[in-house]
């Protein structure tokens, strides 16, 4: 399928539309077969615990992410099956586990912190192993994180030989919202996504990093280890 996609891109670029259409039809057929083979019976118990599924998805994404996206990445890149609902209590459970035996585990699924109040950002999951600035959410961070994740997913796709059509679909959906990354039709071109997302990232990154570093310094200064991971609920830490 990788080869087919490449052929389609070449045909499109060279303006050979009829050929591209024919190839696209073959690709769809191949995707269907792939889907049929990959599809696993729903009753099979998960081989990997949920927290590890989330961990591998977050590691790939490289930025604090909402449950829905984590589930989508797990499904299309790792063939996993999770329900959104399985992730709802995860952060609280991790916090409990951390409080009872701090640092006993190699990683924790923790919170991202809002830059202004250092409170846990709603709905986002992060990894304790990331540097603190990476877990800070300033005004520009949702955008830079989105672009970063898109780049990382695209890079991952380029490394792999055999990729599920679901992964390409997911990248296509993200690409649609990145200027110059794709038209929303047909399979996404990872190289194009990387270039386009990189270009926009360059615009935001400096200001975003500044916000993040400033907030991270404040957090190190004012928060204890638990709050640093799971956020502060105390209003007095608000910056002036």
């Amino acid at each position: 399928m990788g080869k087919l996609r490449k052929a389609i891109r070449q045909a499109t670029a060279a303006g050979r539309h009829a050929e591209a259409r024919a190839l696209r039809a073959r690709l769809r057929e191949a995707e269907r077969q792939w889907d049929a083979e990959v599809e696993q019976p729903a009753t099979q118990p998960p081989l990997v615990p949920v927290r590890e599924q989330v961990h591998r998805a977050l590691t790939l994404l490289g930025a604090p992410t909402a449950a829905r996206m984590i589930v989508a990445v797990d499904e299309s890149f790792f063939g996993g099956q999770m329900a959104n609902t399985q992730l709802t209590s995860l952060r609280r459970d991790e916090e409990k586990s951390y409080r009872s035996a701090p640092g006993a585990r190699p990683y924790y699924l923790c919170a991202a912190l809002t830059s202004e109040l250092l409170s846990p950002a709603r709905g986002l999951l992060a990894l304790s192993t990331w540097a603190l600035p990476q877990r800070i959410i300033g005004p520009l961070s949702p955008r830079t994180d989105f672009l970063t994740s898109a780049v990382r997913l695209a890079e991952h796709l380029m490394r792999l030989d055999d990729v599920s059509p679901g992964a390409f679909r997911l990248l296509g959906q993200l690409a649609q919202n990145i200027p110059g990354a794709g038209d929303g039709f047909g399979p996404a071109d990872p190289a194009k996504v990387i270039a386009a997302a990189g270009a926009e990232l360059a615009v935001h990154q400096e200001r975003d990093q500044m916000d993040r570093r400033e907030a991270a310094a404040r957090a190190t200064d004012r928060l204890g280890p638990v709050e640093r991971l799971f956020g502060s609920g105390i209003r007095t830490v608000r910056s002036a």
């Binding site: 996206m69 005004p139 949702p142 955008r143 919202n177």
Partner: peptide, 27 residues
């Protein structure tokens, strides 16, 4: 609203000619 309101940002960029720099999202 998903992904830092990525869809909305795309639509606003078209509708309001929003420059690329303006991409901040605050919940």
């Amino acid at each position: 609203k998903a992904n830092g309101a990525a869809h909305l940002l795309r639509l606003l960029r078209t509708l309001l000619d929003l420059p690329i720099e303006e991409a901040g999202y605050v919940n």
